[in-house]
Design a protein around this nucleic acid. Structure first.
Length: 462
DNA sequence: GTAGGGTTAG
């Protein structure tokens, strides 16, 4: 009896290994079929079986698919454990469903399943990414208080979160602290640091950390180089960025679409469409799964080439492939339509976006405002601006420039002051346009008000 | 199961 029990356990373990391999390879259907066969043969699935399937479903189809697996496991008399909840929380985090993640964590506590460091990590990650650093810090404190030891992932998540919250200096200090006390530092830590330092404008520090990485036993990977590439493009080191890409390509180190999308969009921005097209071909041929970012990059290229029909054809292919257009897709299309002078169509695109219940898309609106200003329809642009829930530096820069171009300096100065009062800013060229316009028109009072508003804004920022 | 990619102003 004991012997057959042990044999059954072994078989379940083998089945789990098999399921995990199928899930990893993306053959979810075959994994499900294996489970059906196993049950028919009298082989009982355990919590690991269901957790494996759950993680795969969650990743492929989202949180609801994961919850459906929980339902199935309960029906089979298997109780969810910490890994089950961790996968669900991670699934919620991936799709930015912060409230769901918090609810799942609560449910975990209520059902008496003790959270481990993974649970806390996933929750912290989710809170940082959704812009709630204070809550993330609280989760960390809670974790320490409960006696759950922070792992390497916890520290990496914290470093990334500090950068995202705008605390680059604190992140840097924490990194040095981890090194000093001998806490685990690996390639993920280095990549997080290099990316965070680059994005917060501390390129010198980024270079220093990169050099340090070269002296460790940790090998830089494709993620390290993609980060460096992006940093080069950002700081006008185009050739160096392209070289980085080429060395990745020639070395055969590219295993997904990330480096392609990075280099293609940089090329499109430079107007080097032939090379962009060549790398699109390579990306498609490479056999990497094309996700939203890839399609958006391809659509953007077509739009910038003025091939709107091709762009919409790509959109159709993307949607038929089961991908949903997102905020990037819409901004890219609205921008493309605007640049081709099809402002009415762009407005319609924004309408359909609103109908779909998409979050207010600042970028798409900004493109429309810019296009209206460029065709001297500033009053229409102002009307659009008033309908926007969220405005940013781009919104006001376009409008202020547009108003100056048609000589409406009083109105331009009014919007410049509103903008500064809201804590936004405009490009220096827009400020100069307002000031020189007011001066030439002799609007002394407006000039005084704008100067004082600019001075106040500078004080508040420093 | 923590790190990298995609959109807008001059």
């Amino acid at each position: 009896m004991a012997r057959s029990r042990a044999l059954l356990d072994l078989s379940t373990r083998l089945m789990n290994v098999c399921l995990a391999a199928l899930c990893r390879g993306g053959s979810l259907d075959r994994a499900e079929a294996v489970l059906v066969d196993a049950i028919r043969l009298g082989l009982p699935p355990d919590v690991v079986t269901y957790n494996t399937l759950l993680a795969a479903h969650c990743r492929a189809a989202g949180l609801d698919a994961g919850l459906a697996v929980v339902h199935r496991m309960r029906e089979a008399g298997v109780s969810p454990d910490a890994v089950t909840y961790n996968s669900l929380i991670a699934g919620a985090a991936r799709r930015g469903l912060t409230m769901c993640a918090l609810d799942l964590f609560d449910e975990m506590l209520r059902s008496g399943v003790a959270p481990d460091s993974w649970s806390y990590n996933a929750l912290m990650h989710c809170l940082f990414r959704s812009g709630h650093p204070e809550d993330a810090y609280r989760v960390f404190a809670d974790m320490v208080e409960k006696g759950v030891a922070p792992s390497a992932t916890t520290y990496n998540t914290m470093l990334d979160g500090l950068f995202r919250a705008g605390h680059a200096t604190n992140a840097y200090r924490m990194f040095r602290y981890l090194q000093r006390v001998g806490l685990p530092i690996g390639i993920v830590t280095y990549n997080t640091m290099i990316n965070g330092l680059c994005r917060s404008g501390k390129v010198g520090y980024a270079r220093m950390v990169l050099k340090e990485l070269g002296r460790t036993e940790h090998a830089p990977n494709a993620i390290t180089y993609t980060t460096i590439m992006k940093c080069c493009f950002r700081y006008a080191r185009f050739d160096q960025g392209l070289e980085t890409f080429l060395s990745l390509l020639e070395g055969g180190y590219i295993s997904d679409a990330f480096p392609y999308t990075t280099v293609i969009s940089a090329l499109v921005k430079k107007g080097r469409m032939q090379e962009a097209n060549a790398y699109c071909e390579l990306m498609i041929q490479s056999g990497s799964t094309l996700d939203n970012a890839c399609y958006n990059t391809l659509i953007h290229l077509r739009c910038q080439e003025g091939k709107l029909d091709d762009a919409f054809e790509l959109l159709k292919i993307m949607e038929e492939g089961g991908l949903e257009s997102d905020e990037y897709t819409f901004s890219i299309l609205v921008n493309g339509l605007c640049k081709m002078g099809q402002i009415k169509a762009a407005e319609k695109q924004i309408w359909s976006m609103e109908m779909m219940g998409m979050e207010s898309n600042v970028v798409a609106y900004n493109c429309l405002i810019d296009a209206l200003c460029k065709s001297h329809e500033v009053d229409a642009a102002i009307k659009v601006l008033h309908s926007m829930k969220l405005k940013d530096d781009f919104t006001y820069t376009s409008l202020v420039h547009g108003l100056c171009k048609v000589g409406r300096y009083h109105m331009a100065s009014k919007f410049l002051r509103i903008c500064l009062r809201e804590g936004n800013n405009v490009l220096a060229s827009a400020k100069r346009a307002v000031i020189s316009g007011l001066r030439s028109a002799g609007f002394k009072n407006d000039l005084r008000k704008v100067r004082s508003a600019l001075y106040m804004a500078r004080l508040l920022r420093s």
